[in-house]
Design a protein around this nucleic acid. Structure first.
Length: 113
DNA sequence: CAGCTGACGCATA
DNA sequence: GTATGCGCCAGCT
């Protein structure tokens, strides 16, 4: 097995985002200390083929809590829809409670994994 | 082979 | 407070 590619690392982090919480591209990039926020977005671009439950990419927003990637989903409203399903308030393509809903990958360390 | 693009983020004016 | 530019680095044309 070769070393995991960059986007596979991103997938692993995204997969661990707790339901009802959201994180940002920058937070993931910072956690991996690799590439940049842009790379995370690029990585998620490859995941479009995966089902939503396989990779909850809808829980990844930009640093303003905006659903910047909504246009890349199956339908433009899919991301917003999934977030609301999890109890995340979305208004005008933005998570209103973003600051409180924000989840950092570094919290994985606190879960004694 | 060289250049452009991009689901971002930050610095500067 | 808004507007513009640059860096990031893999993938695509």
């Amino acid at each position: 097995m070769s070393e995991p590619t960059y986007y596979e690392l991103v997938y692993e982090v995204v997969r661990r985002i707790p339901p009802g919480r959201v994180t940002t591209y920058g937070a993931i990039a910072d956690f991996l200390t690799l590439g940049s926020a842009r790379m995370v977005g690029w990585a998620l671009n490859q995941c479009i083929s995966l089902a939503d439950d396989q990779l909850p990419a809808h829980r990844v927003v930009n640093r303003l809590g905006e659903l910047s990637g909504r246009l890349h989903f199956a339908t433009p409203s899919r991301m917003e829809e999934l977030l609301r399903q999890e109890g995340v308030p979305v208004e005008n393509h933005r998570v209103t409670d973003f600051k409180e809903r924000f989840w950092s990958p570094e919290e994985l360390m606190e879960e004694d994994y």
